[in-house]
Each structure stands twice: as C-alpha cells, then as structure tokens.
Design a protein around this nucleic acid. Structure first.
Length: 242
DNA sequence: CAGATTTGACCAGC
DNA sequence: GCTGGTCAAATCTG
C-alpha cells in the first residue's frame, strides 16, 4: 500500500516535471520520455489498484449480508469464490470435530493444537504471475510466518502465519496459505480468528506526509483519492469487524 | 540490534 | 504411528 502510494507520488512528481518542461518548451523527445515514464508509473499504480480492488470486492462478496459492489477490474487478480459453502463444510468436517472439550492442561505442557478458533474463512487468491509468486497478494494486514509444513497429498507446503500485532494488540488472527496442486497460481488462504488490531498494518501514510509536497497543491488530491479508495478499510476486513 | 523467517522438533488428535 | 499445528532456536535482514 505504502509502496503504491509512493509510486503515485512519483508519478505526480513526473507530471510536475512535465508541466515544467511544457512551460520551458523542451524538446519533443524529452516530452515523449516524460510521458512514457508517467505512463509506466501510473500504469503500475493502476495495476496495483486493480489487485487491491479485486481483493476488496472478493472479501465484500464473502460477507453474506453485504451487497456485492460492481467492480470492473477483476482481471489481474481473480478471486474465484470465497468461502464456497462446500469448502467450508469440508473444512469444518476436518477441523471442527476436534473441538471436543479436553482440558488444556491435561499434561504439563501448553496446548499446541487449537481447540476452537472462532471464525474460519477460506479464500482462493490468485498469485502474482511475476515477481514473488511465493506469497499471495497482500491483504492489508501484516503477517509473521511461524511455521511451514509439507502436507500429505499436496505438492506445495502449507505456510502458517499469525498477525504481527499478536503480542502488541493480543490479536489472535492467523492464516494458512497453501498453493493448489491443480493451479500453482492460486493460493488457498484460510483465515482463523478475526483481527483485533483494526489499523493499517504497515506504517500508515500520515496526512501530513501525504501533503508534504513541494508546493502542496496536489497532496490533498492523493489523500482524497486514497480515502476514496481505501477509506472504508473495514470493507477490506475479511471478517467484517467494526 | 530488533524483528522476521527458517526449520527441526514437539505435541495433540485421529 | 501418522499427520497437522505450533514452538523455539538459529539464522537472516534492514
């Protein structure tokens, strides 16, 4: 997210430079170069936005009570369907049964197996087809990997993540990420428990930083754009937390 | 040096 | 005993 905003800012700076170039009537060649750079930068930013929007809408769809929001750009990241009921049922069959009550301190050691973790949500997420394909697209939360296991019958290992703010905010959120055997470009991401940290998980871009531009007249535009796009951060929350 | 990642080991459930 | 989830020491990274 921060990275994308940085790209947008860079693009804006290039626009300013282009504006200056126009006023100084520079050569057509330099104008062409500037336009090319701007096009590339904003194109990149647009691709990132598409990914975020696609993810956000997939998550919105995931909430049964919410109305799906029409979005045109689901081409880059196609999030197939989320929480297919059958999928959830399969998962619950496999996992839910083990919630049988058994005292945690049946032995001296701490429990290493979850008994009941609250919400469980399974999402299929398309992987990036370039760059780092090992991790699914960012989901607006930061995760710390705490384990990886080879899963029987699966070609790809399953990675275990927990919220970075687990200790700070006692956030119980966890997720498992596994590539599908039949489609290595698709991840099966299972979320467990909801976040109790309702914040940007990377350093938020402060409004002061966002407006700290050379002349300051377009900073607010970017902030407004960001607010328009991501202002309702709750809608990105996989569990619809308030 | 703090925080994240890796990875082998441990443990509970089946 | 096998499997999956977690721990924690070692290692890596910014």
């Amino acid at each position: 997210m921060e990275e994308m905003m940085s790209v947008i800012f860079n693009g804006i700076n290039l626009v300013k430079e282009l504006e200056f170039s126009l006023s100084t009537q520079e050569s057509l060649e330099s104008l062409s170069n500037s336009l090319g750079s701007i096009s590339t930068l904003f194109g990149d930013a647009n691709e990132r936005l598409k990914i975020l929007l696609g993810r956000r809408n997939a998550l919105i769809l995931n909430q049964p009570e919410s109305k799906p929001v029409p979005v045109s750009s689901l081409d880059q990241v196609m999030i197939h369907q989320i929480v297919e009921h059958g999928l959830m049922d399969d998962y619950k069959l496999g996992q839910g049964v083990m919630q049988g009550v058994k005292s945690i301190d049946s032995k001296t050691s701490r429990p290493r197996r979850r008994k009941k973790d609250g919400e469980i949500e399974t999402v299929l997420v398309a992987a990036a087809r370039m760059g780092n394909m090992d991790t699914p697209p960012d989901d607006n939360y930061t995760w710390r990997k705490y384990g990886q296991k080879e899963i029987l019958g699966s070609k790809f290992p399953r990675a275990y993540y927990r919220c970075t703010h687990e200790k700070l905010y006692k956030c119980p959120a966890k997720k498992q990420v596994q590539r599908l055997d039949e489609d290595p470009y698709t991840f099966c991401v299972t979320y467990r428990s909801s976040h109790t940290c309702h914040f940007f998980t990377t350093s938020p871009i402060s409004s002061t930083a966002a407006t700290e531009t050379t002349d300051g007249h377009y900073g607010s535009t970017v902030v407004n754009m960001a607010e328009a796009l991501f202002g309702n951060i709750d809608s990105v929350n996989p569990f619809g937390e308030p």
